[in-house]
C-alpha cells in the first residue's frame, strides 16, 4: 500500500526525530537516516523504521529521517503519525496495528 500524499511528523528538537515520508516509483521502501547517534544506533533505527512500515503494510515509500537522539518509542510514534497523515487516516487510527507493547 502506498500513501495518498507526502506527510511529515516530528521536530528537530533534541531527543526527537523529524520524519518525511512520500511515495517512490518502485515497490520497495527506502530509508535515509541522519542521526547524532548514527554510530551507536543508526542500523537499529533504520531496521525499526522498516519494521514499522512493514507492520502497516506500507510499500514503495521513501522515508527521510533526521534523528536528534530519539528513543525507540518516540521514533515509532513519529513514524506512525506520518504514515497515518500520509494515508489521510489520522482521525481513523487502526488501534489493532498500533500496539505499543
Amino acid at each position: 500500500m502506498q500513501l495518498n500524499k507526502p506527510a511529515t511528523s516530528g521536530t528537530m528538537d533534541s531527543c526527537d526525530i523529524s520524519i518525511r515520508i512520500e511515495n517512490n516509483a518502485g515497490t520497495e521502501n527506502e530509508v535515509f537516516l541522519s542521526s547524532i547517534v548514527e554510530k551507536q544506533y543508526g542500523k537499529q533505527i533504520v531496521a525499526l523504521i522498516h519494521e514499522i512500515l512493514k507492520k502497516h503494510q506500507i510499500e514503495g515509500v521513501t522515508v527521510n529521517a533526521v534523528d536528534r537522539g530519539a528513543l525507540d518509542c518516540t521514533i515509532k510514534a513519529r513514524l506512525e503519525s506520518a504514515i497515518y497523515r500520509g494515508l489521510e487516516k489520522e482521525h481513523a487510527l487502526d488501534w489493532s496495528v498500533i500496539d505499543h507493547e
Binding site: V37, K39, Q40, Y41, G42, K43, Q44, L71, D72
Partner: peptide, 10 residues
C-alpha cells in the same frame, strides 16, 4: 532498557 543496547564503537 530505555535506550537500547548500542552497537560497539569501532
Amino acid at each position: 532498557k530505555i535506550v537500547g543496547k548500542p552497537d560497539p564503537i569501532e
